[in-house]
């Protein structure tokens, strides 16, 4: 069995595999520790970053930022009276090739949290592995306790922000939805650690296509049926106007009763408008 470095190296911070402890190196002997304003003076020891480990001698300090290969498009999410709803299509694009058409980009984390991801899907799988480890830890505690959606969101904020500080970002926009103290929670994190919570969220193209619809029609006390109708409408717009999308969606609902992630489904679309067939007929001289 080969030793796996812990997922979160105390020396490198969350989301980086690496040495467990700060190692004294010749560098630190030659250049004694300088007063470092960015190091917290108390607490949060596990998030303390050891700059000797980051700039270890012989190691190239700058890693080239990769570009995404297999990517997912928008994730849409909104709160409603009894919980939260997330939806996305199931496409994994490879450049402009629609390569994997059954890739589940919305996943259950635990009994009250769901994670949706757009961006690089290998990074999403990595993030899911981190979360699965945490969920298994909760299982082993065997006290019925589990991480709350806000805790998971905060954790992911730290992981994504720490990785961008290493010039090695996880190329994702994540949406975290769940139920906390009987109230809906909905938050998002971007690839450079940008994060916020809101009553409705959309990543990627959805931010341009679906958010305006949400702003117009969403209210936090809307019924489940109304919320579902709204998210369907938004999904449809995304399908019409986002090149990297397919008509195959999954919808997750998180309520007090628990988490459900639907089987993939398609939405009816309309192409039978009278002017579609011959668009230039009523506008002579156009194409």
């Amino acid at each position: 069995m080969l030793a796996r470095p812990p997922s979160h190296s105390p020396a490198l911070g969350p989301g980086c595999a690496g040495p467990p402890l700060a190692e004294a190196s010749s560098v630190s002997i030659q250049y004694p520790a300088q007063p470092t304003a960015q190091v917290p003076t108390c607490g949060a020891a596990s998030f303390l970053v050891d700059h000797n480990a980051v700039n270890a001698p012989g190691r190239d300090p700058s890693q080239h930022t990769q570009m995404p290969y297999v990517t997912g498009s928008s994730v849409l999410a909104l709160t409603f009276k009894d919980g939260v709803m997330l939806a996305s299509d199931t496409l994994g694009s490879y450049g402009s090739t629609k390569r994997y058409k059954s890739f589940e980009r919305i996943r259950k984390v635990n009994d009250r949290t769901v994670l949706g991801a757009s961006g690089e899907l290998s990074d999403f799988q990595y993030i899911m592995n981190l979360l699965d480890e945490l969920t298994t830890d909760d299982f082993c505690e065997d006290d019925g306790g589990m991480l709350s959606p806000r805790e998971i969101w905060s954790y992911l904020c730290r992981v994504l922000y720490n990785r961008r500080n290493k010039q090695d970002p996880l190329w994702n926009s994540l949406v975290i939805g769940g139920i906390e103290h009987g109230k809906p929670f909905l938050g998002t994190v971007g690839m450079i650690g940008t994060h916020y919570t809101d009553d409705h969220i959309a990543t990627g193209f959805g931010n341009m296509l679906a958010r305006p619809l949400f702003r117009e029609k969403h209210s936090p006390d809307m019924s489940e049926a109304d919320a579902e109708a709204l998210i369907h409408e938004a999904l449809k717009v995304c399908y019409y106007r986002d090149k990297q999308s397919i008509n195959k969606f999954q919808l997750a609902k998180i309520t007090e009763a628990g988490v459900s992630v639907s089987e993939p489904f398609a939405l009816p679309t309309r192409w039978d408008y009278k002017h579609f067939e011959n668009p230039s007929a009523n506008a002579v001289g156009t194409w």
Partner: peptide, 12 residues
């Protein structure tokens, strides 16, 4: 199992 460029793992 497909293992494309970035290291995604997809069962197909």
């Amino acid at each position: 199992y497909a293992v494309p460029l970035g290291g995604t793992l997809v069962k197909v």
